[in-house]
């Protein structure tokens, strides 16, 4: 009993348990939001707002008040807070700095590729892959194959430059 409580608090939970709970949460989001869970659309809109305010992007008319009414804002913010809280509950909070500059560059380039790829495909792993397939959309399956191929290419790059 005590060990179960330990595992619940510290983790790790079994992958299949995570899968089931995530699946149920995913369905709940669809019910509450009336559209599937997605991550990058909201990030892009916030980026537009920041860019406009910094004067480096032309205004697309997003206001702060408007952004605060978008469901995506709360899903993404919640995710961040939830992950932090999970780490905190297990007393595993610590700052984990980058320890080799090659990872700085791979993170930056990786992020750029991800952001660009996600928006031209209308979504990321969650929006276009998971929920594209979940929506019984053929595009989702095609995107999944493309991402898998990209993963294969990325793995080759990892072995060559990051080991």
């Amino acid at each position: 009993m005590k060990k179960t409580l330990q595992t619940i608090i510290h983790g790790p939970w079994a992958y299949w348990i995570g899968a089931i709970i995530l699946g149920l949460l995913n369905i709940l989001v669809l019910i509450v939001r009336r559209q599937p869970w997605g991550v990058t659309l909201n990030i892009e809109i916030w980026a537009e707002w920041v860019g406009t305010n910094l004067g480096i992007l032309n205004d697309r008319g997003f206001t702060f008040k408007e952004l605060m009414t978008f469901s995506g804002t709360y899903l993404n913010l919640g995710l961040l807070l939830g992950a932090f809280w999970a780490t905190l509950v297990a007393s595993q909070v610590r700052f984990r700095p980058i320890r080799d500059k090659k990872f700085f560059f791979s993170a930056l380039i990786g992020g750029l590729f991800m952001g660009y790829g996600a928006r031209i495909a209308y979504g990321c792993n969650v929006g276009a892959l998971l929920n594209g397939i979940a929506s019984s959309s053929l595009t989702g399956w095609i995107f999944a194959m493309a991402v898998f191929s990209g993963t294969w290419l990325g793995s080759k790059l990892l072995l060559k430059y990051l080991m």
Partner: peptide, 9 residues
Amino acid sequence: GGLLFGIGM
């Protein structure tokens, strides 16, 4: 997009 996303992630 998928290819780029896969490489990037």
